[in-house]
Amino acid sequence: MEKIYNLPESLIDVSTHYCPGCGHGIVHRIICEVIDELNIRQKIIGVAPIGCAVIAYKYWDFDCCEAAHGRALAVATGIKRVRPANIVFTYQGDGDLAAIGCAETIHAANRGENLTTIFINNAIYGMTGGQMAPTTLLTQKTATTPAGRDAKLEGYPLKISELLAQLEGVAYIERTSTDSPKAVLITKKAIKEAFQNQIDGKGFSMVEVLSPCPTYWGLKPVDAVKWMREVMIKEFPLGRIK
């Protein structure tokens, strides 16, 4: 009998530390599948963020580097500039990429660094205990917005992808989701394109993946997916942005 579903070579067979219903595991796997399909495992250098995915490298069977909170794209710039033949990517959450690392993100994109960034947007801070993210929706309750995010006090959900799309150095930006098998397949296609762009030397490519955090959204995994589909996607429309 033909085996049609394998553990990707790039994925390490360990049990997950992520919560039930979390989207990180799905995206980790997609990245590994894409790396295998593009046959670049031996060239890949990943940069892990600070946040729930701080130990993403525990799941990845290829070279990885840590970065201080928000500095993943600066570390990746350092790596890629001295090793242009390697394929370098960052994996970052909304706090890392759009709050504390906003300057690094904008400037790496604006320099047109030939890098791939996978941006996980779950509208909340997971690792530190459910605080407000720059992408938290208005009225969404978090540990630091107990009455719900109020635009007057906390501003608006930050559309970093739309913002980056304005920059000339950016080759490709797409927002996708993990709310259905179909959405996962679209996400995989987008991530593959983002890596292919780097192989082709096209410049900065980013895929923003909307991803559920049932634990800190205070929802059951199934309800979290429903909320993502019915509420979050309205605020963060899917599709190719650039």
Binding site: A68, R71, A74, V75, I79, V82, A103, E104
Partner: peptide, 11 residues
Amino acid sequence: LAAISMVMGAS
């Protein structure tokens, strides 16, 4: 902040 992190990456 970025400068020292870039050095970290190159190193």
